[in-house]
């Protein structure tokens, strides 16, 4: 349907172009270009590969179109299905722990205590370490003659004979502890910044109304920090769903498949077995799954707060 046949005069066109150049668009273009190149293009390429028989083990080029076969195969793949459950458990537990511990640490750092300034600068250190290095350090910490089993024995808990990372019941917990150790400071620092942004007069008003510390935190501070909390949850949840380095360094997914997460499963499929088509399908499934979860979370969080800004 033709909406309008009116031609824009040359003078107006030139004015429009000038307006475009004067607006924010030229400054956004480089970021947009980078985003398209680094994010959108690989996603589209992965989508194209996901519907092909593309396995570098048998040919260096995609062989043929296979429709949704790679996706169907994923749902029958017990490694992948198992990895979904394990990764969700890992993501929920670690995000929850980082949130709670991070908030607690932020409350402490927000107090005027002796040495708090030094503590604030030191607390960022674990986050600054590369995850692979943290993973390696904790691997030694957990090994059968390491500090962790010694500490457990000292408090009367018998450590697993195969070591914390060698036992199917404790390996994932060991990795969770490493993850929480490394990323709790990140949550704590964000929460600390948010706490310092809570208006003093609101807190004073709550105190005048007779609210105790717990009530003030629950009914005044937390609601004011809601958008920050939602952001931290989102960032940490996405990061933990994609966890790779720590697991790779500590257990390589073992023992058995006790610590095989989605990231590791896709890594092995794509970069060890070179089944590019299938790995692309798995990547897309994980992307869709995480997007779905995030949107459900945002909707729920938004409904509770009457809309998130």
């Amino acid at each position: 349907m033709i909406v309008s046949t009116t031609r824009v005069p040359a003078k107006d066109r030139s004015r429009t172009r000038r307006g475009f150049l004067r607006g924010p668009a030229p400054w956004l273009l480089p970021s947009m270009a980078v985003l398209i190149l680094l994010s959108l293009y690989p996603q589209i390429q992965a989508l194209l590969n996901s519907v092909r028989l593309y396995n570098l083990s048998i040919a260096s080029n995609p062989l043929r179109f296979v429709g949704l076969r790679n996706f169907a195969y994923a749902f029958a793949d017990e490694q992948f299905v198992g990895a979904i459950g394990r990764t969700m458990l890992f993501a929920v537990v670690t995000t929850g722990a980082e949130l709670l511990l991070g908030f607690g640490v932020a409350l402490l750092l927000n107090k005027k205590l002796r040495g708090v300034k030094l503590a604030r600068s030191l607390i960022i250190l674990p986050t600054a370490i590369a995850p692979a290095v943290a993973g390696l350090a904790f691997r030694y910490f957990y090994q059968t003659d390491g500090i962790a089993p010694t500490l457990l024995s000292a408090v009367g808990v018998t450590p697993p004979e195969a070591g914390i990372l060698g036992d199917t019941k404790t390996a994932l917990v060991g990795i969770m502890v490493t993850e929480v150790w490394q990323w709790t400071p990140f949550a704590a620092l964000i929460f600390l910044a948010a706490l310092q942004g809570v208006p003093r007069d609101v807190l004073e008003a709550a105190a005048i109304d007779g609210a105790g510390r717990l009530r003030t935190t629950w009914s005044v501070v937390l609601p004011l920090m809601r958008s920050v909390i939602v952001t931290v949850v989102l960032l940490r949840f996405i990061a933990t769903v994609n966890v790779f380095d720590i697991v790779y360094v500590q257990t390589q997914g073992g023992p058995g498949d006790a610590t095989t997460t989605l990231g590791l499963n896709i890594f092995y499929t794509g970069l060890t077995y070179y089944n590019i088509g299938y790995a692309s399908a798995l990547t897309w499934l994980v992307t869709l799954f995480v997007a779905l979860l995030i949107n459900v979370y945002l909707l729920t969080a938004g409904r509770r707060s009457g809309g998130l800004s």
Partner: peptide
């Protein structure tokens, strides 16, 4: 075989599951 690494992948994981008592 050209797809050796694929087979080695799931073979190795299954063998490891036997040691871990999962299979």
């Amino acid at each position: 075989s050209m797809n050796y690494t694929t087979i080695e992948g799931y073979y190795g994981r299954r063998l490891n599951k036997v040691l871990a008592g999962q299979d």
